[in-house]
Nucleic acid binder design. Structure first.
Length: 504
RNA sequence: CGGGGCGUAGCUUAGUUUGGUAGAGCGCCUGGUUUGGGACCAGGAGGUCGGAGGUUCAAAUCCUCUCGCCCCGACCA
């Protein structure tokens, strides 16, 4: 029993299946009756809400405000930007009718066709652009710096909870600027926000940089991205920021009179982060016993489990738990109140303990009759083995709780960074590259590969070939100092190494 | 959208080849014994076997159609 892990299969046995089991066992989300759509349960939604609040504060701090635009986009608006519509065409959901009527067979059927079909937003560049076009008359109206939190729909063929669902939640920032330089700066600034958020809040080390031409957002001039590595060593895009040039401004007619009195098109950006981040956190930090949450985004930081097995001490134990909770709640952790829950449910102590382990609560506290006498508590950290409990005086625990949370946060980041670095290789020839990305066991591929830092001649043909051969793509062309070399596939000159990986 | 597989209780499933009227484990409910580590005993509830049609005295089982899910490919935050 003691060797058994809470989640079956283990990560090394079958990572995708492990992921599904974790999401279910931790009660983060479950598949719904609607194909491709998920029900986000309170624990999962709590994580998302924390992400939302914390990112939102960062948006505000960089001068952005929230607004809301329609879910439905007239087809003609959507079709204005050619690359854009082409990029999203295959995953559009389209509303074509209103009203239901009962037909001859007694079934309900759509009755009244719309004059113009409405696309359920897969992203809002076009509808927001149309609005901005009305708002922008003069350079004095710029910049416009807005964000919206909303749902979007992309009709996916193969959904996975949080990672790829037909409907998902996200935030999309949309800005207009007077000059190209300002818009490029904004694109960078928001990528920086994502990078900070991923690192400091979600404990995710990321590579940030630019997408290659073929991986770019449809309609963008430049797409920038933060890429994380999860425990099956695949890459996952955790946030993205686009410099849209004047493409959407021209498509939507966002024009203004410049300082020189000339009519000019605005320069726009857009940037987004999604509920996929929840899945990324699970896949990065989780272990064979379930989720491990970075304290900063955990809905509950500390769970107190009262040991009320003896009737005569029950009331005093519960009272001590309440006192402890009150003391903890007065403490601050970073800029957050410490969230404490007392699990008073009438279940076996072990059952409750394991539930919270699976959910990934950072700190579990047990308080029973024996602790009452010694004025101590038993403390378990989720980033440490389940068996390792520390016994300490109550006051010491209360005083140290914020530090302990910070230490867990740091530990998760350090582990993730170490894992990523251990699985990131500089690769300098084609043979090594192919070997790196080829599993030893072809029947049941083991976890293999990682990030390959390799030189590339910049051509789309090479990308295509590698994608066909290995399912490996260029995840990001990192910013930073150039390191000239030679393309490992063609021998042609290359300005810098790029990050190759299999991806979600 | 192409190729393969699978639908039996909330979950995992046995039974399908060779038709005979549905069984288990987990979970759930009740009572009791337990309780510092995912408890035990006893009792109980829960299934029109994905759906529709057909063959048959008889269908979870055979046939046809249909819907849904999973895996592999193409696409994606």
């Amino acid at each position: 029993m003691s060797n058994q892990s809470a989640i079956s299969p283990r990560r090394t046995e079958d990572f995708p299946e492990w992921y599904q089991q974790v999401v279910r066992a931790a009660e983060l989300a479950e598949p719904s009756d609607v194909r491709g759509c998920m029900v986000i349960r309170p624990w999962g939604f709590g994580i998302w809400e924390n992400m939302q609040h914390q990112l939102d504060a960062m948006f505000r701090a960089t001068g952005h405000r929230n607004a809301y635009f329609p879910l439905f986009i007239p087809l003609s608006y959507f079709a204005k930007e050619a690359e854009h519509v082409e990029g999203f065409a295959k995953e559009c959901a389209i509303v074509t009718h209103t009203r239901l009527e009962v037909d001859a067979d007694g079934k309900m059927k759509p009755a009244s066709p719309l004059n113009e079909p409405l696309v359920v937003r897969p992203t809002s560049e076009t509808i927001i652009g149309a609005t901005y076009a009305k708002w922008v008359q003069s350079y004095r109206d710029l910049p416009i710096l807005l964000n919206q939190w909303c749902n979007v729909v992309r009709w996916e063929m193969r959904p996975r909870l949080f990672l790829r669902t037909t409907e998902f939640l996200w935030q999309e920032g949309h800005t207009v600027h007077e000059t190209e330089a300002e818009a490029r700066e904004e694109t960078q600034r928001m990528l920086g926000v994502y990078e900070t958020f991923a690192r400091d809040h979600c404990a995710l080390p990321v590579f940030s940089g630019e997408k290659s031409e073929s991986e770019k957002f449809p309609g963008a001039v430049q797409t920038t991205t933060i890429e994380a590595m999860v425990q099956d060593r695949k890459a996952i895009q955790a946030g993205t920021s686009h410099f849209l040039g004047q493409n959407f401004a021209k498509a939507s007619g966002i024009q203004f009179q410049s300082r020189e009195g000339k009519q000019e098109f605005g320069w726009t950006t857009s940037w987004g982060m999604t509920t996929r981040m929840v899945g990324t956190v699970v896949m990065t930090h989780g272990d064979d016993d379930g989720v491990i949450l970075p304290p900063r985004i955990a809905p509950t930081h500390i769970v107190i489990n009262p040991i009320t097995t003896k009737e005569e001490t029950r009331a005093r134990v519960l009272e001590a738990c309440e006192r402890l909770a009150l003391q903890l709640r007065e403490k601050r952790y970073v800029d957050l109140a410490i969230e404490v829950e007392i699990d008073k449910r009438d279940l076996g102590g072990g059952v409750k303990n394991w539930e919270w382990i699976k959910k990934g609560v950072p700190i579990r506290v047990e308080l029973g009759p024996r602790d009452l006498e010694k004025n101590s508590v038993a403390v378990g950290r989720r980033d440490q083995p389940v068996k390792e409990k520390q016994f300490m005086p109550v006051q010491e625990f209360v005083a140290n709780a914020p530090e302990m949370l910070m230490s867990i946060q740091q530990n998760l980041y350090d582990r993730a960074l170490k894992f990523r670095d251990e699985n990131t290789r500089k690769i300098d020839n084609k043979e090594d590259f192919y070997e790196f990305f080829t599993p030893k066991n072809r029947e049941r591929p083991e976890i293999h590969g990682g990030f390959a830092l390799a030189h590339w001649n910049g051509s789309r043909e090479i990308e295509e070939r590698i994608k066909n051969d290995l399912k490996v793509t260029i995840r990001v062309v990192p910013f930073g100092d150039a390191e000239p070399g030679r393309c490992i596939f063609t021998g042609e000159p290359s300005r810098r190494r790029v990050v190759w990986a299999k991806a979600y």
